[in-house]
Design a protein around this nucleic acid. Sequence first.
DNA 1: CACTTACCATAGATTAAATCTATAGACAAA
DNA 2: TTTGTCTATAGATTTAATCTATGGTAAGTG
Lengths: 299, 299
Amino acid sequence: MTLKQLQYIVTVAEEGNITSAAKKLFIAQPSLTAAIRELENEYNVTIFSRSNKGIKLTPEGEEFLGYARQVLDQTELIEERYAGKGSGKLKFFVSSQHYSFAVEAFVELLKESGADKYEFHMRETQTFNIIDDVAHLRSEIGILYLNKFNEEVIRKTLKDNNLSFTPLFKAKPHVFIGKNSPLAKKKYLTLEDLKPYPRLSYEQGSHNSFYFSEEILSTVDCDKELVVLDRATLFNMLIGLNGYTICSGVINEELNGPNIIAKPLKVDDYMEIGYILPMSIRPSHMTLEYIDILKSLTA
Amino acid sequence: MTLKQLQYIVTVAEEGNITSAAKKLFIAQPSLTAAIRELENEYNVTIFSRSNKGIKLTPEGEEFLGYARQVLDQTELIEERYAGKGSGKLKFFVSSQHYSFAVEAFVELLKESGADKYEFHMRETQTFNIIDDVAHLRSEIGILYLNKFNEEVIRKTLKDNNLSFTPLFKAKPHVFIGKNSPLAKKKYLTLEDLKPYPRLSYEQGSHNSFYFSEEILSTVDCDKELVVLDRATLFNMLIGLNGYTICSGVINEELNGPNIIAKPLKVDDYMEIGYILPMSIRPSHMTLEYIDILKSLTA
DNA sequence: CACTTACCATAGATTAAATCTATAGACAAA
DNA sequence: TTTGTCTATAGATTTAATCTATGGTAAGTG
C-alpha cells in the first residue's frame, strides 16, 4: 500500500472511470489500472467492478475507500502544516468551548505575530469535538472545563487519547440577569431563587449550539425554557422577561452591555478551566505563545 | 511523502540511530539516510539532528512524528483488516456502552460464523470513545443511548463525524435493589423514594469505569454514595445495605441472580438505545449480521 | 449490420526511484 | 594514534512506476 494508490482509488471513485481519473492525475490510463490492480491484489479485495462503460465501486470497495479516506485525511494535515499548501500560510488551530478569554488570547496572538502570515482557526465547539480535534492533531490546543461531575470521565478520556490537561483557573457558575430583574438586588442566587423565572439559552447557527447545554446544571429541571437563535435576542429577553441564563462567569461582561449583570450562583459546583495538549507531539512555538497569553489573561 | 518514509522516521526515532534502524527495517543504512533526507527536504523540516554518536529528535521532529504516527495508526487499520496480519483472522470490533444484549448478540454472532476464524473485540466504553472509535473506523459499529438531555449534543456530534444513528428500542430507567429492600414492595420508585438509601456504582478495572456515571441522572445529588470495584461486591451491598443502583433496565436480569430485582423509576426521562455506523463506508457482512441479531434480541 | 466510440486490459519499452555496496569523514573512547 | 561507531556521499544496480501502442468488448449510430 502506498499513499499514491490510496489517492488513486479515491480519484477513480470520484470520477467513475479510470480514463478520466488518469487524466486528472496526470498519469497514463494503464499506469492507473496497474496501480489499482496492485492494491487489490495486495489485500485481496475487489474495489471496483470494471465494465466497458466505466467502473463501479463494489460494497467491499466502498468500505475500503472509507479507510483510505481516513488515511488521506490524516496525511492532509501534514501537507497543510508543512507544505504550506494554500498560499503558504502557517496555520494555527484552537478548539475551545465558548470562552471570551480564549478568543481574546487568539486576537492577541494574531496581533503579536504578523497577521497576514498565518491562517487562524478558532473552533468553538463542544467537549467531544475539542478532545477529538486535539487527539487527532486537527487543533494543536483545546480549551475546556472540568467539574466534579465530568472530571472523572473527561480525565479518563484524555488519558485514553494521550492528552494532558493543564488547569488555568477555577470559576464559579454565574447567572446573567437583566439589571432590573427582581433578582438584581441579591448578592448571590440559588437555584431556588431562579425557579419562577424563564431560563434562556441560545444557539448561534450551527456553530456553537449546545454551548449552554454543555454548561453545568443544564440537566436540572426547569419549568420555563426558552431557546433563541440570536445572542442579542437572548439579552432582550433576559431584560424583558426577567429571564436568566447560567454560564461560567468567564464571559467578558463588557460584551453584554450595561443592562446585563452577572451574579454568582450558590451551588456546590466549580469549573476548572484549562487547556489540553497532545502528549505525542511537542507544542509548537505558536502554541506556547498562545498559552502564555491565556495565562496572562486569566491570571 | 510516502508511507515508507513515515515508517522509517518512526523506527529511527525509536532506535535512536540510523544504523540500527536500518537493520531493523532490513535496508541499508545509506538508503535510510537518503529516505529521511528526502522527507526533510520535501517539507523543509529538520526532524533529526545528526551526530557521529547517533541522532536526536529535534522539537520540530517530535511534532512531525506526532503527525506521522497518526497516519500510520490509520494505515494499520487497513493492514489489520485486509492483510489479516496476526494469524489471518478476520476482525470484528464493537464499541458499546455496557449492555448485556450487545454482548449476547456478540456471542450469538460468534456462534453463527465459525468461531476460530475471527478475532472479536467488544469494547465496553463511554460515549466519547464509542463515537471516536466508529468515526475513525476502529470499530465498525457502536451502541449507545440518547435521552432528552444528551440527544441534541450527541446528534450534532454524530453529524459532524458523518455517523448515522438507528434506534433499536426505548427503555425506561430502572433501579436495581435487593429483593428484601423496603422498596421491594413498591410497583415503581421515585427519586424521592431513593433518597434515604445509599447509591451504588461500580468501576470494573479500567475498562468500563464510568459506566454508571454516563447513565442518566448521575448528576442528581445523592447523600450516600458508594463506588465499588467488583460487580459481585456491588450486588452484595445492594442486599446488605439496602442500596440501589440506577441503570437502563436493559441489563439481563438473569445475570444478577434471584436476590436482585429491578423496579421502574418514575422520572420524566427515556433512553433511546440504538447503534451508530459510519456513513462513509458500507457496513460489512459481519456488521449487518450483528445488527440483525441485535434487532432480534431487542424486538 | 458495419462503424464508431468509449471504455478497460495487456505487452513491452522506458524512465524514475529506491536500494545496494563501498568508502569517506567526524568524533569519542581506548 | 588507533579503533570503533556513527552518518554522509558516490556510483552501480535493482526494482517499481509509468509510458506508448495496441487489443478486446460492449453500447450507440447511421
